[in-house]
Nucleic acid binder design. Sequence first.
DNA 1: ACAGTCGCCGACTAAATTAATCGGACTTAG
DNA 2: CTAAGTCCGATTAATTTAGTCGGCGACTGT
Lengths: 151, 151
Amino acid sequence: MLKLSKKTDYALMAVQYMSSKGTDRVVNTKEIAEEYNIPGELLAKVLQKLGKKGLIVSQNGPKGGYLLAKSPTDISVLAVIQAIEGHVGITECYHNEDSNCMQMPRCNIRTPLRNIQNSIYGLLDSMSIADMKEFGSATIVPQSRLYGHRT
Amino acid sequence: MLKLSKKTDYALMAVQYMSSKGTDRVVNTKEIAEEYNIPGELLAKVLQKLGKKGLIVSQNGPKGGYLLAKSPTDISVLAVIQAIEGHVGITECYHNEDSNCMQMPRCNIRTPLRNIQNSIYGLLDSMSIADMKEFGSATIVPQSRLYGHRT
DNA sequence: ACAGTCGCCGACTAAATTAATCGGACTTAG
DNA sequence: CTAAGTCCGATTAATTTAGTCGGCGACTGT
């Protein structure tokens, strides 16, 4: 349905939150969960995934928690999404070799959809967490002229 | 998961198919279903939805079927997607008034995600069925420079 | 050294969405 | 008048997503 999952939302919120707290401050799961009314156990898993992907760094024990692994300008929205959702494909039948899609043989939409997908990838990759923060308060619309041949 | 539903895929395939058959030729559900190995009953509903939205025109009785309602250059990919999926929202908590999202009060990602969504909308709206056909055989990549400040 | 806080992990259940099927009505060319 | 088609709502099946549970391991402070 072309929608991000809740987990991904949570991931973006968390990363954004950490970003807002500075790069040095250790933040724990409970703190974020309470800030945004997110089920703690679920958020925990989300953060663990982000950790595994190297986007954030964990610190064990009491007073432990998480830190951003890099500068917010170096973490793309795409990276966060992919960390949680794995392969982000606009369609099943394209990149997935074992998708045994019945339409494969004659499919007439794969190539154009892949192009659309690539454009979306490009967009998501070009936006960093730092950018999100910026756009969050202001109302800048990063609308782009892409093809622009339709009205 | 940022993926189109099968129904939407079917819709795009069908419209594309009709487009390829010319604007005057009446095409029936079975024909398309067999061409692409799509469950007929399901495709039927998809086509009915496209009909209701005025993208295609139906013709009853034997030798009936469907026709594109307009030129393939005037049918955007977005229109087809929206005909099937209704409101295409990258996130729950934004446009939907009754989504009672628990994160609403402090959500720090709504605005930036809306901007991303708008960009995707723009992309999908700028691409027509006729464009898809073009990109289908060739391998043109309509990748765009959008922000371009990340490597 | 041990107790409490916190991350780590996998299995599980519940809920929601999507895919597909079924049954029957309406329309119309031949 | 009948067969080939669309039309439509209800239902079931399958898949995905959301959230829960229980136990383990790491670390800090006393």
